[in-house]
Amino acid sequence: MSSTSSITQVRGNVLTPHGWINGAINFGDLICNIDGHALDHEPVDGSPYANDGDYILPGFIDLHVHGGGGKDIMEGGDAVDVIARLHARHGTTSLLATTMTAPLEELEVALKAIGSASRKREPGSGRARILGVHLEGPYINPGKLGAQPDFAVEATLEQVDWLASFAPIKLITIAPEIDGHLELVRTLTTAGMLVQIGHTLGTYDDGVAALKNGAAGFTHLFNAMSGFHHREPGMAGAAMAHAEYAELIPDMLHVHPGAIRAALRAIPRLYCVTDSTAAAGMPDGDYTLGRQVVHKCAGGVRLADGTLAGSTLTMDQALRNLIAMGLDVSEASLRTSTYPADYLGVKERGRLKPGCFADILVFDRQFKLKEVYVEGEKIDLAHA
């Protein structure tokens, strides 16, 4: 990593790993330094440390992105660039492009495009950094497809290796109760891949076994998994009882706020994703999600039968939703930036400190996004 000669400065209330600093952050493509005086508490309105300065937070990291701006990741071609530009305008500075369950030839098309986009980010592109792939399917339970098309298959190491030859697979969703999958969880984890449990009919014991074999987290907690009952705690119960990490969609449609609160108490590093579709950032109407047509209406995205099919959520709205629930700004930032970075093992993103990439967000006092910087490049928010 090397910093550019041109230095930019933004001023306000800077959230650092050690707390708030009222002052300035100076950066090129990397953060150079942060100057100012430390605040003992959050500078929110009504607190003794309130002021009129902007909030400066680390860029969002979204590990579950299917689409946006009218485009779907499975389209291949330039779709990933359109999607990454849309989400950058809403504060996502890096993301995992997420696939749908599909025939292998369709996955190959999507992964080749993601692979190309992840190898470079052209200056002036206006898009988020593509960190790699979240392979959500086809290794899921056909009895718990959710909004996934019916192309689920049993996983093999050879097939995963073949798919990984087209793009870096950073995260893979697997239903561990399928024959052979538990052993594969162990193999993939040993090889350094993050394995998540999702789209599963597995029991509590299946979840515990998968975690013991190296599974690292859970895909869209509560959704498309066996639910919690006090005599049959299911996969959701395994997550609540044992998980360190799990992703959750805080659009207030996928998960009731009460369930979000329970998960926040139970799972130390619960983090937020959008599970966004092509409908994100678009007007109501019909869009594609993999092979399927989905309809956006009243803020949600559904299949023809009414099944929720991803979301229209963007990460800036996710942050606002968490704050509206009563989370401190600093905790909301952990769950939208730092924890997903830690989960991926990416220490140079998701936090504001010298030497990290200058992935920086500037919010006004009402948490409306004012400025976005991706690796020091200012993003045009005109179409956000």
Rank of each mutant, 00 (worst) to 15 (best):
G46E: 12
D81V: 07
F357S: 02
A279V: 04
A210T: 08
R186K: 12
V294F: 05
L201F: 07
A332D: 02
V273A: 06
Y55A: 09
G217A: 12
A164C: 15
Q9G: 09
G227H: 14
F222D: 00
H256P: 00
G192L: 02
A79R: 01
W20M: 04
L86P: 00
H134M: 03
L221V: 09
S276L: 01
A278H: 00
P233D: 09
F357K: 11
Q292P: 07
N321P: 11
L253V: 11
G214N: 08
D305M: 04
S226H: 14
R85W: 07
D380F: 10
A209E: 13
D205V: 13
D81T: 08
H383P: 00
D54M: 12
A191I: 02
F363V: 03
A304K: 13
H18L: 15
T200N: 10
H383I: 08
A341K: 04
H295S: 15
E106R: 12
G143N: 12
R335S: 04
H41R: 15
Q317Y: 14
R291I: 13
T336W: 00
L334V: 01
Y343L: 08
V362E: 09
D364S: 08
G53V: 00
G28H: 10
A280G: 05
K378W: 10
T203Q: 10
H230V: 13
Y204H: 13
V153P: 02
Y245I: 03
V185H: 01
L334F: 03
V195A: 03
S6W: 06
G355W: 11
W20G: 02
D328R: 15
D72K: 12
K296Y: 03
K112L: 06
L135E: 09
L95S: 00
L184K: 07
I379K: 04
R186W: 01
V14H: 08
A84M: 08
I34Y: 02
V10I: 15
R269Y: 06
G124T: 07
F357C: 11
R320P: 05
A164K: 14
